[in-house]
């Protein structure tokens, strides 16, 4: 992996894109990386497009600006593709990961982006495992898999520990979330 990886998240207020970016930061932090996870605060309304960012590096991070030329873009809500220039500044050797039921070929035709395109049906996975629509776990898994920031086995152990901590009061949801993680690792499709 490169020394510095920069990731930009696009989502809608309330969907957990910010939380996902903070979770990713946490997971990377646990493997010894230097991390930043921060949202770009706008009008804080449910449903409004929001942006969040991650910097993950082997070296100390000092830059505190937003990210304009990301290595990876994560789109948590595919309807944003029509309204937000999600590929803006995205590096040609980078990749975009989109939450959609469509396959990567179809999406790539709609996008003005030459690089790698990945899709994951976070809704289907989330509803079939967790039992409700929480797209951020599948999207987090997808970005870990595509970026290779963290080795998969390390990630699996770490995320399980995080879930056990996070859901200490309702341990029965941990296996469901882990099932979502495992399925997400398998179901990311890419070009």
């Amino acid at each position: 992996m490169a020394k510095l990886v920069e990731i930009r998240w696009h989502g809608r207020g309330g969907q957990g894109a910010k939380t996902a970016s903070l979770l990713l930061a946490e997971v990377a932090f646990n493997t010894g990386k230097y991390i930043q996870g921060f949202p770009e605060y706008g009008p804080e309304r449910m449903g409004a497009p929001i942006t969040a960012y991650n910097r993950i590096s082997d070296e100390k991070l000092t830059i505190h600006s937003n990210i304009y030329e990301p290595d990876y873009v994560v789109v948590v809500d595919e309807t944003l593709l029509k309204t937000v220039p999600v590929t803006s500044g995205l590096k040609k050797d980078g990749a975009i990961i989109i939450n959609t039921s469509k396959d990567p070929e179809t999406v790539k035709k709609e996008l003005n982006f030459e690089g790698r395109v990945y899709t994951i049906d976070a809704r289907k996975i989330s509803e079939e495992t967790i039992g409700a629509y929480y797209p951020n776990t599948p999207m987090l898994v997808a970005v870990v898999k595509v970026s290779g920031i963290i080795p998969e086995d390390v990630f699996l152990n770490d995320i399980e520990a995080s879930f056990k901590h996070k859901f200490a009061n309702k341990p029965h949801v941990v296996p469901k979330n882990m099932e979502a993680v495992v399925r997400s690792l398998q179901e990311v499709k890419g070009l």
């Binding site: 946490e26 230097y34 991390i35 930043q36 991070l61």
Partner: peptide, 12 residues
């Protein structure tokens, strides 16, 4: 310290 940039960003 800076609002949002420091206050709301997660760092090491």
């Amino acid at each position: 310290f800076d609002g949002f940039i420091t206050s709301h960003a997660v760092e090491n």
